[in-house]
Structure formats: C-alpha cells, structure tokens
C-alpha cells in the first residue's frame, strides 16, 4: 500500500477496546494498572458500537482491564455482532468457567484469547502476582474449546520466557489453541516501572526474533503472530506487509473506558472522544495520528536502510522512553 495520505483507509480495521481499567490481577508488565477513569454505561457503549458499525470497522477486540468484570459484556458482544462487527477479547482467564465460556459462545465471540506468559505455573503465577492463575488460565482454554469458541493465546515476551517460547507453543497446541501471539514487551504503566528487570536488550530481541521466525516457518499446525514493527529490519522477515511500521493509527485505534480514542493502548495521547467528536475529523485530521503516519527518520534511523520497512519500529516504545514519537525504537539492535 502506498503510504500517501490519500490512500488512507476510511476507518481502522480494528478497535482495541478497553471497556474497563478494573482488573482482578496486578501483572508485572501491565500497561493499564495505574489507569483509572469514568466507565460508560451500556447505552453509551451501544452508541459507540453504532458509530463503529456505521464506519464499517470490521473488528473490535475487548481488552483491559479484565473484560469479564463488566456484567454487561455478553449483551455488548451480542449487540455488536448484530451490528455486523466481529468481536473478540483477551482475558486472564480467572473468571472464565464453563458457564462463562458458553455465554461467550452464545454472544457470538469469534475468538477469545487467554494470556499465559510461561509454560511453568510458578513463573506465570509470579509474573501475574496471582497464585493459581496458570491453572485457571489453562482451564479457561479448555472450557472455551468445549464450548466451541476459537481460542488464541497471548504471551508477552520478556526475560522470563524469551528462551523457552517453544514450550509456550507446545502448551498452546496441547490445549487446542489455533493462534499464539508472541507480544513484544511494552514500556508502559507497570511495564515501564519493571522494564529493567523484564525487558530484553536489543541484541536479545534480535536473537529472539531470528529464532522465532525460523520456528514460525517450520510450524504448520499453529499460527504464530508477532506485532512488532522492529522485526521488519531482519532479512529473515519475509512478510510483505501492506502497511509499514506500527499499524497503530493506520489500521487500528484504541478506545479507553470513557470513549476517549488513543492511537493504541500503550500511547497515552488522546486524539478525541468517539461520542463527543466527529470520527472522520479525528481519523483524517488528528495531528498525532498524522504524525504517526508520516514519521521522519531521526537519530540512528537517519540513513538506515531498514527505515523504509520498519519506519522506526514501535512508536509507543519510542514515545515512552524518549518522549518523542519519531525517535528510534529502543528495542532496535541496528
């Protein structure tokens, strides 16, 4: 895809939607644990769904906070599905028993992702600061499978798992997961606070991705996904992505519990409110979004041959660490 402004899509393809910042966990890497604010009622949530349907946004993914803490989650999903949206969510799995799994299935969820960060129960529980959370997360995957809901698994790569990610793949396989997301570590919220302890060095990130890409080529029974634009600078990366660099602000946006829109969950820059402001005005004319869509090479990115493909890597990480959207991604090894 040309990056020309005139080629911009009419709306994002995905809204990552934090329905609530409330959570029953205090995970070591959580971007939102320090966040708080107004939560919309069901009627306003439905109004947002109407806006998204009118703009033909095809996908919404509920995250959080823990989505299952919203008692109206199933009603919201059912309504969104009827409006033509494809609904998915991510959960820590703690509250996902058999009844919840059947309700998720009945309310039309296309897939449900469960966060599991280590194949070792003790490590996962320690990372999530919740004894027994590994067992409940794995059981949640089984409940979902029994209810006929497609499952995915989300694992944030950090110092606790970067050398044992193959074991996470095995765990996913053993519980009928169709797709695993190996998320890159973000320096937001508690992730920023704990980054010295949890984040990898740029060279470790390079080594992880080289190995993970090799495994992805070999593995045929499980889809492995990465969401890290810095990976595009590796010669082993062969995907011909239609959009270069961070997809935030180009293919996806994030909704906070009060309807505020940010480019992604890890970038705390509010570009407007979906209930109060004109969506097209935000989408086409937000200075923040347009800055993210037309990044200039700064620092070591200047003159780097990889910039055309990675566009400076993860914008959220650059902003969190340097305060500047256009600075190089601190994970970059080049």
């Amino acid at each position: 895809m040309s990056e020309a402004f005139t080629d911009l899509f009419s709306a994002p393809l995905t809204f990552n939607w934090t329905l609530s910042f409330r959570c029953n966990f205090v995970c070591a890497h959580c971007y939102s644990r320090f966040e708080e604010g107004e939560e919309l009622d069901t009627a306003d949530i439905r109004r947002i769904v109407d806006v998204l349907a009118e703009k033909k946004v095809p996908f919404i993914n509920f995250g959080g906070g823990e989505p299952l803490l919203r008692s109206d989650l199933f009603d919201i999903a059912t309504y969104a599905g009827r409006q033509g949206l494809n609904v998915s969510m991510n959960t820590n799995g703690w509250l996902l028993d058999g009844d919840a799994a059947r309700s998720l299935q009945a309310s039309g969820f296309k897939s449900v992702g469960v966060s599991i960060d280590s194949h070792q129960a003790a490590l996962h529980d320690d990372f999530r600061c919740q004894a027994g959370s590994f067992a409940r997360a794995v059981t949640a995957l089984d409940h979902l499978r029994a209810a006929g809901v497609k499952t995915t698994m989300s694992s944030v790569i950090s110092r606790i798992n970067h050398k044992s990610f193959r074991d996470l793949l095995d765990l996913a396989r053993n519980h009928g997961v169709t797709q695993i997301y190996l998320h890159n570590f973000k320096c937001s919220g508690k992730g920023f606070e704990n980054r010295q302890e949890l984040d990898l060095t740029p060279e470790e990130w390079r080594d992880f991705y080289v190995e993970a890409l090799m495994v992805k080529e070999q593995v045929k029974d499980l889809a492995i996904s990465f969401d890290d634009p810095v990976i595009a600078s590796l010669p082993q990366y062969r995907e011909n992505s239609l959009v270069k660099g961070s997809s935030c602000g180009k293919l996806s946006l994030h909704l906070r519990p009060n309807g505020d829109i940010t480019p992604c969950g890890f970038i705390p820059l509010v570009v407007g409110n979906i209930l109060r402001d004109d969506f097209d005005e935000i989408w086409y004319h937000s200075p923040v979004l347009n800055a993210m869509r037309s990044k200039e090479a700064k620092g070591k990115c200047s003159g780097c041959a990889a910039f055309a493909d990675c566009l400076g890597g993860c914008t959220a990480r650059a902003l969190a660490v340097t305060g500047d959207l256009e600075q190089p991604d601190p994970h970059c090894w080049k």
């Binding site: 080629d7 911009l8 899509f9 009419s10 393809l13 033909k56 095809p58 494809n86």
Partner: peptide
C-alpha cells in the same frame, strides 16, 4: 471473508 469497499480511495 471480512472485506470492505474503500470508497474514498476509489475516488482518488
């Protein structure tokens, strides 16, 4: 298959 007609792009 999920798909979307991009009218604005088409005009351009």
């Amino acid at each position: 298959i999920v798909w979307r007609h991009e009218k604005r792009r088409e005009e351009e």
